[in-house]
């Protein structure tokens, strides 16, 4: 048995070049990779963090933004506990693409998924095209959490992942309290809710 209490799958999505890979590498390896190449298919990294005394293992799936990989990357949505939708605050185009990404989330992800909207590259101050409040409003409208980051300057990157980890942990603890004993014979008649919770736990 591995040494962790909870395991969560976190999937990063968003247009090509918005900085998904850089965010993940900043968080998992503590560096900003120079000349990061476009992701092919899906990359996979693991990091274990501690949330209020419990070891929490994060499985991070970094997907490619290029259109041709869509059918591959979409297959990861359903099992995700956390989804991070990233855009580039210096690129209106990546912001305008968000509705399409939300449609995809709606069609493929679990309805209880925890989703974050992330505006990245805030270090490029002058080049910014999307003001913070616009991103915030958008996130609010679609009931997502909002955070702005810079993978380059390590701004808010740890906060982003740790926030997700603690929210997911909190939810899992809550559910554990409601349904103690895994092999209880009473199954709620709502299938969707079972499918969304029993996958979260791995002891």
């Amino acid at each position: 048995m591995e040494d962790y209490k909870y395991l969560f799958k976190i999937v990063l999505i968003g247009e090509a070049g918005v900085g998904k890979t850089c965010l993940v590498r900043r968080f998992t390896q503590g560096l900003f990779p120079p000349g990061q190449a476009a992701t092919i298919g899906v990359d996979f990294m693991i990091k274990t963090v501690e949330i209020e005394g419990d070891k929490v293992k994060l499985q991070i799936w970094d997907t490619a933004g290029q259109e041709k990989f869509r059918s591959i990357t979409q297959s990861y949505y359903r099992a995700a506990h956390g989804l991070i939708l990233v855009y580039d605050v210096c690129s209106q185009r990546t912001f305008d693409a968000l509705p399409q990404w939300l449609t995809d989330i709606d069609s493929f992800a679990n309805e209880k998924v925890l989703s974050y909207l992330v505006g990245n590259k805030i270090d490029r101050g002058d080049a910014r095209e999307i003001p913070t409040h616009v991103g915030e409003q958008f996130a609010e409208r679609y009931e997502m959490k909002y955070i702005e980051t810079s993978a380059k300057e390590a701004d808010n990157v740890d906060k982003l992942f740790l926030d997700i980890a603690s929210r997911l942990t909190e939810d899992a603890r809550e559910r554990n309290r409601l349904i103690p004993g895994e092999d209880s014979m009473n199954i709620s008649s709502n299938t969707k809710s079972i499918s969304s919770c029993s996958r979260c736990f791995k002891f």
């Binding site: 092919i40 298919g41 899906v42 990989f69 059918s71 591959i72 297959s75 990861y76 359903r78 099992a79 499918s195």
Partner: peptide, 17 residues
């Protein structure tokens, strides 16, 4: 490898859902 992983994911969805 990515193709296999994607199909494994889809297989899970079909079976589980």
């Amino acid at each position: 490898v990515d193709g296999v992983c994607a199909m494994l994911n889809h297989a899970c969805t079909i079976l589980e859902q």
